[in-house]
């Protein structure tokens, strides 16, 4: 579903990713862990085309996302193609980023109506079902500012799901929340993982959550995959000393 091929990402003189290659199968849930600055979030942002790819290729279902090889040369894809492929990917952000100028329900229906061309009524019904799913049916008419962080994040999840993504990127979605609000959000995501076959790439520090939902954990360090394993193996008997230290520090 997702394939990184020799991906290089530099911010100025700083190299964050250097020749990274890995793949994620359709329906797979992969958690990326590692110390801050190890490049996990950058990987999600590259997939969402929020950052410019310095070198290499990213494929979504075999289709090159931002750059392709044409006549042996690496060239940028046309914006139209990028948009078409990007539409299959959704993302939930650490800071929720709800649109403050819209009610909860409008936040969810906005893109389905204006991007997917759904009718208002169709989008509304779907939005209601999604709000029900995240436990916020009664807040449809509220303003984002009236909601707690946990509620805002649940709306943001509903908003991402309303676009029917094949791939969902979760970027530290509970890091900005008060501890007592974390569980509601994670419970919603567990439910999504249970009831759909959406491919997920997850950056999180919630190891129990990672254990519950992911098939595979990738440990990053300095832009490389230090090791990868099933969550049970990774969290109980990691191969590398560096991984052990990291896990000890956050658990």
């Amino acid at each position: 579903m997702i394939r990184f091929e020799d991906v290089v990402k530099k911010f100025g003189d700083t190299t964050v990713l250097e020749g990274l290659s890995f793949a994620v199968e359709r329906g797979e849930r992969v958690t990326l862990i590692g110390p801050s600055g190890s490049g996990k979030t950058t990987i999600l942002r590259l997939l969402m085309t929020l950052e410019h790819l310095t070198d290499g290729f990213i494929y979504v279902d075999g289709d090159p996302l931002t750059h392709e090889l044409r006549g042996g040369k690496r060239v940028e894809r046309r914006p139209k193609d990028v948009t078409r492929i990007r539409r299959r990917i959704g993302m939930v952000f650490q800071q929720f980023n709800l649109f403050p100028n819209m009610t909860v329900i409008d936040n969810i229906t906005e893109a389905p109506v204006h991007v997917l061309g759904q009718s208002r009524e169709e989008a509304r019904q779907r939005a209601h079902a999604l709000l029900d799913q995240v436990g916020l049916k009664h807040r449809a008419g509220a303003h984002p500012m009236e909601l707690s962080g946990g509620q805002q994040q649940r709306v943001a999840i509903a908003r991402a799901l309303a676009m029917d993504p094949e791939v969902l990127l979760l970027d530290e979605v509970t890091s900005a929340l008060d501890p007592e609000l974390v569980n509601d959000v994670l419970e919603v995501l567990r439910e999504v993982a249970r009831t759909t076959d959406i491919t997920m790439l997850i950056v999180t520090h919630e190891m129990q959550f990672a254990r519950d939902v992911s098939n595979r954990v990738l440990m990053f360090d300095h832009g490389h995959i230090l090791e990868e394993a099933a969550p049970d193996v990774m969290f109980t008997s990691p191969e590398h000393e560096r991984t052990r230290q990291f896990l000890q520090a956050i658990l």
């Binding site: 929020l50 990007r86 952000f93 991007v115």
Partner: peptide, 16 residues
């Protein structure tokens, strides 16, 4: 900036 990034994540056109 997060507002702009979210519109990218939702594939909104520049005009929208």
């Amino acid at each position: 900036k997060g507002q702009w990034e979210t519109t990218v994540a939702l594939s909104m056109s520049p005009v929208t």
